[in-house]
Computed example of a mutant assay.
Amino acid sequence: MITATAQPLNPIAFELGPLTVHWYGLIIGIGAVLGYLLAQSEAKKRGLPEDTLADLLLFALPLAILGARLYYVIFSWENYADQPVRALYIWEGGLAIHGGLIASAITAIVFARKKGLSFWKIADITAPSILLGQAVGRWGNFINQEAYGGEVSRGFLESLFLPEFIIEQMFINGAYHHPTFLYESLWNLAGVALLLYLRKVNMRQGELFITYMIWYSFGRFFIEGLRTDSLMLFDVIQVAQLISLVAIAGGIALLVYRRKTGMSNRRYLDAEPQKTTVKKSKS
């Protein structure tokens, strides 16, 4: 039975004088920190220079947020046309992860070339961390009551053995909704566990990241189908579903191409080739 007493959680975490800290930004920040710590630990084992990931994060994080916001605003411009300044209000929600991933990938490619490092090595090291950050970040959507699915009964939510605070937060616009943010968060956490296991299997270089692409996109395609607040392309197809299909096809094509061309002959756990110095003999 639907009650009228469900009250949404306060989106503001705390205030320090004129500074207002929103849960949305705070949770995304926590996800980024956890992802960085996980990646940094692995980077040391794989022999990356100590400050590599910190330097990359310095560029990638703000550009990822910018890309995620720009992507969202472009595909939902009707919400900002009358007040374009609201496009800057990221604390209200509206960061499209695909936009952030595209911006991050471009940043990482340029960064790796400038530093003379392998993009695929960096991508493999950071793949579980990216997915961990996404899993945590979805809880920012939960606080803002976005990224939810179609209407369901309270009984359905209770059958999932969800805690009361999640059930109450899924009461939106007079009805209960699928907690699709939670479905994706759990899918992503399962993906993190898979990728951490595959590290030990010693996959070919680049294939950890490609597995991430396929895993995330596969789950996102089906979860997106449950959502009612998705970005649409020409009112015909959900943008995230289209991008997911492209990512799956692209990931499979990359796997085949890199194996056929020998680009993936190195293994993830292979040691870096040591540079040898030739000593000149005295004459």
Rank of each mutant, 00 (worst) to 15 (best):
A39G: 06
I30D: 10
K45G: 01
L34M: 15
F14E: 13
G47K: 03
K45T: 11
L26N: 03
G17Y: 13
I12F: 01
K45V: 06
G31K: 14
L38F: 05
H22Q: 11
A39N: 05
H22C: 01
L48W: 03
K45D: 10
L34R: 15
G31T: 14
I28G: 05
N10K: 06
R46F: 02
P49R: 09
A43F: 04
G35Y: 06
G25Y: 04
I28H: 11
I12W: 02
W23C: 00
L9A: 03
L48N: 01
G29C: 04
I28Y: 12
L19Y: 15
R46P: 03
V21Y: 11
L9P: 12
Y36G: 02
S41E: 12
N10S: 05
A43V: 06
G35N: 11
I28T: 10
L48F: 02
A39V: 08
Y36N: 06
S41K: 15
Y24F: 00
G25M: 01
L16M: 12
G47T: 09
L9Q: 11
S41I: 13
I28A: 04
A13F: 11
L19H: 15
P8G: 03
P18R: 10
L19T: 15
A32I: 13
G31S: 14
G35W: 03
I27Q: 13
G31P: 15
G17R: 12
G31R: 14
A13E: 10
E15R: 00
R46E: 08
V33W: 09
A13L: 09
W23D: 01
L16N: 12
K45R: 11
L9D: 07
G29A: 06
K45C: 02
G25H: 07
P11V: 01
I28R: 07
K44L: 10
I27T: 14
R46G: 00
R46M: 01
Y24T: 01
G47I: 05
H22R: 12
G25W: 05
N10D: 09
K45H: 10
L37E: 06
E15V: 00
Y24K: 02
N10T: 07
I30S: 07
H22W: 11
L34W: 14
